[in-house]
Every structure is written in C-alpha cells, then in structure tokens.
Design a protein around this nucleic acid. Structure first.
Lengths: 136, 136
DNA sequence: TTAATGCTTCCAGCAACTGGAAGGTCAAGG
DNA sequence: CCTTGACCTTCCAGTTGCTGGAAGCATTAA
C-alpha cells in the first residue's frame, strides 16, 4: 500500500504518518520511485498508534507501548505501569478542569449578561485573593 | 516596582511577565537604565491575568477580558459570552477526558500487571475496531 | 500534451510559555 | 578600586503533536 491507502484504512492523516516515521515511531519501505510502501503489519502498527493516541497516551508512551507490543517476552506489569501513570495524569487533569468549571460556572450564573457594565466575573478576576497557587 | 517585585507579588514568573509584554497583553514603563518599571495598576492587571489564566482562559480571551475590564461602558453580556464559550470548551474537554478515563480504567483493571506477557491493554490497542472517530 | 492526482521534502507556525546564554547595572564589602 | 552577587536586559531555542503550504517529481487518463 501507499501512504494514501494506509491513511484511509488507519484513519490517520498522511501527514501524521510521515511525522511518525520522522520521529522514529515506525518505519516503512520505499518503492523505486521513492514512494513509501506499507505492509499490513505497518498498517496494524499505525492503527495501534491511532488507538493509543486517542486514549491520550503521549508519543513517548506510544513508543514504549509499541516496543512492548513487539516484545513477546514483555511483562504485562510494564504495560500496566504506563497505563496507570497515564490514568493518574488524566485524573489530575480532570480534577483541575473540574475545579475550573466549578468556579467558572458559579461566576457565569452570577452575571446578568445584559447591557449594563456591572459584572461579577470581572469583579472576581480583579479582586480575588492570590491566584489559587495551583497550576504547576 | 521592578519586575522581580511584581513577579513575587503577582505570583507570575518574571519570564511570563516579559512574555505578556512581548505579545502586547500589557505594557510597562522603563527606567533610565532600561529596567522595566511597574505601577500598582500594572501589578493589578498582571494579577487579573494570572487569575484569568488559572481559570483556563486563553491568552486571546484574556486580551479581550482585559479590554472589557478597562472599558467601564462595557456590557456584562460581552463578558458573559466569553466565559460561556470557555465553559463550553471545558465541558467538552471534561467529556473527552472522562471517556478516556473510563476506557483506560477498564483496561487497567483487566490487566494482571505481573511478569507474564498476556496483556489486555495491548490486546485492546491492537485489536479494537476503527479509532473512535473522536478527537477532531 | 496537458491536466489531475498523489507522492516527495522542507520550512513555518500553532499555545503559552520555559530554559539558557551573553551581557549590562547597582549596592555592599574588602 | 575591584570584586562579588543579585538583579536586570535581549535573543534564541525547545517544548507537544501535529498541520498547512510551497516547490517539485511520478503516474495515469483524456
């Protein structure tokens, strides 16, 4: 297959596939004319990457996951560790976003949203005490 | 005040303050020696920015919020619109992350995490149907 | 012959900073 | 007078994960 075919079949843009090859996440063969040539196994790998990325794994996580996937003597514990680390990051992000949402929703509901200038949102941004110290 | 003082009092790194000036989010005066000089009003503005950013508003949102803050003839509706738009983006992100978390937590709990190679996480990444089509 | 696809590479840019290098400025201490 | 140290300055590069676009070659059909 050529890159357009794998793009269609994997759901990944051709640009992204080239990018993945660029950063050494995967590799492909080449035809005489310089075009990339992909095997079913390559397609499989790309689909794997697409799935991992859609679960939010970082590129570096994906690199390691792919390595473990190829290594049939891997320990499932290694995979689980990566997934747990990622899960923890997701939870942290969820917490952070949830806190933002709480505050923001409160402010939004307090604002009349009319033509007058009085606005609790601006007042709060202007007057709240020190920034919540979070966000590191 | 000089930049170190506003940095301490606003909680923003000096680097960030320079960056904000760079992109025209705020401005400051200069001493004869070229050092930036900040007034209490400048500090106030930076604190405002810090708060808005900590609520997740984008830089462009912040620019607009600051403009509205300075404009005493603003309509609170304009502020509310920005906040509501941001809230919607947060909700979308929360949904997306929640979905990731669900899937991932499921996979993690199904994985033994021991020395053996069998791993439902890898199996799923390898075998799941087309990528969930999300993430645009 | 030409036009339409599809492929190639390379460069730039997005958000919002952050790190580091190279160097100027000022007050205190010896 | 000189040095040390804590500031400050600018500029350049890197982060994450792509994405857009330009310039140009390959292949096929009309």
């Amino acid at each position: 297959m050529r890159i357009g075919d794998v793009a269609r079949r994997s759901g990944l843009p051709a640009k992204t596939i080239r990018y993945y090859e660029d950063i050494g996440l995967m590799s492909s063969g080449r035809d005489a004319n310089g075009y990339r040539r992909f095997s079913e196994a390559d397609l499989h790998k790309l689909a794997f990457l697409g799935r991992a990325r859609s679960l939010g794994f970082s590129i570096e996580d994906c690199r390691e996951l792919l390595r473990l996937y190829d290594d049939h003597t891997r320990a499932s514990g290694d995979v689980k560790r990566i997934a747990e680390g990622h899960l923890a990051r997701i939870d942290a992000k969820l917490e952070e976003l949830g806190e933002m949402r709480r505050t923001l929703a409160h402010l939004v509901s307090a604002c009349a949203g009319d033509d007058r200038p009085d606005c609790p949102i601006l007042s709060d941004l202007a007057a709240a005490p020190a920034p919540p110290a979070g966000r590191e």
